[in-house]
Design a protein around this nucleic acid. Structure first.
Lengths: 134, 134
DNA sequence: TTGCGTGCAAAGGTTTTGCATGGCA
DNA sequence: TGCCATGCAAAACCTTTGCACGCAA
């Protein structure tokens, strides 16, 4: 799905996500937020826009708790985020950006030994971060 | 939830899962399989038993980012079988199960050098598989 | 016999889809 | 003006829950 026209809802959704970097939101939470501002945005619109943002690499989608609704988080659209790796803490929700030789090694290994061309930008490592383990 | 009685459905479900190691199944697929054998097992029963198997560590549950239904996979109760990884091909949709020293190395690295306790079962590597790259 | 597990159906919740309308270009 | 995006409602899905019945121990 590609955007042809730029709309007010689009801008407001993106603005909201950008203003809360590092936070993750469900579609319902986003709808509620705008409702509190007396701005109604249809649920379908929220899902459709989020899907586009994800395609563009500006937003990342997570499924944290099994069965719960999906979470969305602004990660910016720059190459910066496609070249490094993301760890998501399942306890505090923090998204950790990591640039590490070990992971680059893995990328090479997957490609050369398994023929798998890894899309780093879409992959999220789930786990528990150092702070939450203490 | 704990099992008190041992039932036929329980045994048949576990037998089916064990007979397909390395394969992933949705609840619907499992139901369909038994239907083809003219054995009816209620959807609720399937979910309830799967939940128990997961609690026991015999089966692993995982979700893909697509928000599809949950997948279940027999991993046995032993340590050796819990340490494998999932690669998802974005083109053909195939889920690849990989057991590889390199990935185990990464697990150790993340823990020891970054303090990150990786939940392998929840992580899926996205990319393009060897067959689709040709 | 006791009470847990099962199957059915209905409920609950999230996400998608169809369609008429409104708004961007 | 021509389409696309929106909003609403309904549909489509997946999963859970309530309840009466059957079966294991």
């Amino acid at each position: 799905m590609k955007t042809t026209y730029r709309t007010k809802q689009q801008d407001e959704l993106m603005a909201y996500l950008q203003q809360h970097p590092g936070a993750h939101h469900t579609a319902a939470q986003i709808k509620e937020y705008f409702a509190r501002q007396d701005k109604n945005i249809g649920t379908a619109t929220i899902y459709r826009q989020l899907e586009r943002f994800v395609e563009d690499g500006k937003v990342r989608k997570y499924l944290l708790e099994t069965g719960d609704s999906a979470c969305y988080e602004y990660v910016g659209g720059q190459e910066g985020c496609t070249a490094h790796f993301h760890l998501k803490c399942e306890k505090c929700g923090r998204l950790i950006h990591m640039n590490c030789e070990e992971l680059k090694r893995l990328e090479t290994h997957l490609l050369e030994d398994h023929g798998f061309e890894w899309t780093i930008g879409k992959t999220v490592f789930y786990g528990v971060c150092d702070k939450c383990r203490k």
